[in-house]
Simulated scan of single mutants.
Amino acid sequence: MKRLALKIDVDTYRGTQRGVPALVELLSRRQAGASFLFSLGPDNTGRAIRRAFRPGFMQKVRRTSVLEHYGLLTLMYGVLLPGPNIGRRCASTLRAVRDAGFEVGVHCWDHVRWQDGVSGADNAWVETEMTRAVERFTQIFGEAPRLHGAAGWQMNRHALRLTQRLGYAISSDGRGTHPFLPVIDGELIACPQLPTTLPTLDELIGVDGITADTVADHLLSLTESASGDQVFTLHAELEGMRLLPQFERLLDGWQAQGFSFVSMADLAASLDLKRLPHHEVRFEEIPGRSGKLFVQGPAFPA
């Protein structure tokens, strides 16, 4: 049976409060495995307005109805209202995800700060952000995290190095086609990457006539003949809320296509992680998303 890992990014306080429980209920009912990656510090979503001058950002805002999906209150956090500390306020919700049998991991400390700042950050900045997230995760769950998935698929050389130093067993920080060991500036990073292989719903809606009503069928057409394991990233703020019916339609379709739904850890368990191919790291734009993302590059000689 083909496997599809469901990677759930939780970006905001609202998504943690409302989207996460809805997804836990749906996935539990479907007996589907999944991995939840949490933002653990302040929700400063409102500060994302600084991206207004980034190429493609406002176009994405118009396509995906940001106000509709995130709500006015969330868009005020960090600007007109103090950003609520997600890990402090929602610790019981996060533990309930683990207690329901799902894998849990780290997305980031401050989602907007990471997504907007990490590309040009030095090691001290990166280490502060990543260490804060690890410490809060450990406080909540009583053990260190084993899975990392970067906010906005944004990384740099220091962050990749820290995934191995902080003890992560696997990471899903970028976009690509299959599991690999990353090589950046000629340096091999020992922490395996299991990249997102499929486009996200918010990258597809509003492009080439695709609507919220047709996006599930479009994505299913892409996976109909797909070979090998796949990783799909969804968001608690989208597929856990207004796009929940579309996500359930995807689950039905993928099940009909022969996929089983697994966590990232389940996917990794069947791999010989020490023998994964080595691939260069690149930072490139991808369709439907603004800015440059961490992307799996060409094979690098072992």
Rank of each mutant, 00 (worst) to 15 (best):
F180Q: 02
L194W: 09
E135C: 09
F141A: 09
H148E: 05
F180K: 00
F137V: 14
S119L: 09
E129L: 01
N123Y: 13
D202N: 14
W125M: 02
D217E: 06
V112Q: 12
E135A: 15
T163H: 07
M155F: 06
H218P: 02
D116F: 11
A144E: 08
W125F: 13
L166T: 12
E248A: 15
E127C: 11
H178D: 11
V126W: 10
Q154K: 14
S171I: 10
S172I: 03
G209Q: 03
M130Y: 01
D173S: 15
S225W: 05
A150I: 03
S171Y: 12
V112G: 03
G228I: 06
T223Y: 00
M130H: 03
V207G: 00
V126D: 05
H111A: 13
V231I: 13
Q139W: 02
P199A: 13
G240V: 13
F141P: 13
E135D: 15
F141S: 08
E248W: 09
D202Q: 08
S172P: 09
L251R: 11
P199C: 12
L222P: 08
L244F: 14
E239K: 03
S221Q: 07
D110I: 01
T128A: 13
F247E: 09
L250G: 10
L160D: 06
A121T: 12
H148Q: 09
G174Q: 09
R249E: 03
A159I: 10
H235A: 12
A133C: 04
E248C: 10
V118T: 07
G174W: 12
I205A: 03
V183I: 06
G117I: 01
R157C: 02
A150G: 11
V207N: 00
V215H: 08
C191H: 06
I170S: 05
P192E: 14
Q246C: 06
G167F: 05
A151C: 10
I184G: 03
L234D: 03
G209D: 01
G209P: 06
S221W: 04
